[in-house]
Nucleic acid binder design. Sequence first.
DNA 1: ACCATATACGACTATTTTAGTCGGATATAG
DNA 2: CTATATCCGACTAAAATAGTCGTATATGGT
Lengths: 145, 145
Amino acid sequence: MVKLSKKADYGLIAVRHLSQGETGKPSSAKEIARAHGMPVELLAKVLQKLVKQGLLVSHHGAEGGYALAREASSMTAFDVIRAIEGPIFITSCVTVRGECEQAPHCTVREPLSRVNEVLAQALSSVRISDLGGGLPPLVQLEATK
Amino acid sequence: MVKLSKKADYGLIAVRHLSQGETGKPSSAKEIARAHGMPVELLAKVLQKLVKQGLLVSHHGAEGGYALAREASSMTAFDVIRAIEGPIFITSCVTVRGECEQAPHCTVREPLSRVNEVLAQALSSVRISDLGGGLPPLVQLEATK
DNA sequence: ACCATATACGACTATTTTAGTCGGATATAG
DNA sequence: CTATATCCGACTAAAATAGTCGTATATGGT
């Protein structure tokens, strides 16, 4: 199956969430998780990865939380996914260094890596700021509590 | 991880393999598997799926095997992957009918489905005939025996 | 007719990946 | 000092994937 992991999903959703709120005010993991019905602990780990990769900034303590480290328009879906999942390769044949683990006789590496490139480029073309829609209704924030 | 399953890999490799040989002559699963170092039984199942989806034609018995059902130029990576994996959705949020399983309050459905579309389109843009490279050297065919 | 070679198909196991949970450490605002 | 956060690692559970095995069926060649 060609799909994003839930972690990547959560990451994209969270980053988009942060791109919508007021810029100065950070959102806590709990807040984001509740707004979208995700398990808090899992989302927290995702957010921490995004911090470590420099996409988000965090603030400890009460009234703390997470915020975008830079403009939503300069951040792509590719950035977020890669930060969460590590280097992205689509085909199993291609490793981090772009090499095939099998012997050099592998002639499919080159053709399949083209699929890789196309997909990577597609993901890079999606800016976080392009992910429209509003924040979920407040009803939800209460209901999930 | 955003990646194709091995099955999808095998499928793409096999289809490409078939697109390279002489058009009339079918290739057996064993032949293809050996040429690329895949488990025969697994590849066989993949090929059978491709037949069932109408991408390949098969021929039983000795001198039998598989062949493309139509031109390599009219077949895309998307076709092959979808035939193997079923309907493709990238984000976990989007189901077959494009609906979110969660309540309608889900506001991320629409934005994330954009990621879906972009990737699907990217895969559709890759024609099998675009996957260049030659067939593996004959050495390999012997060595793997 | 017989046999070697194929596809076709389902059941099964093993492995890996993913998802989710838990416990505790550290930082910070009020 | 306490409530609220991030942070981080270890752990378990569940699901998807990869691979295996057995068997039935079709077909070309001898």
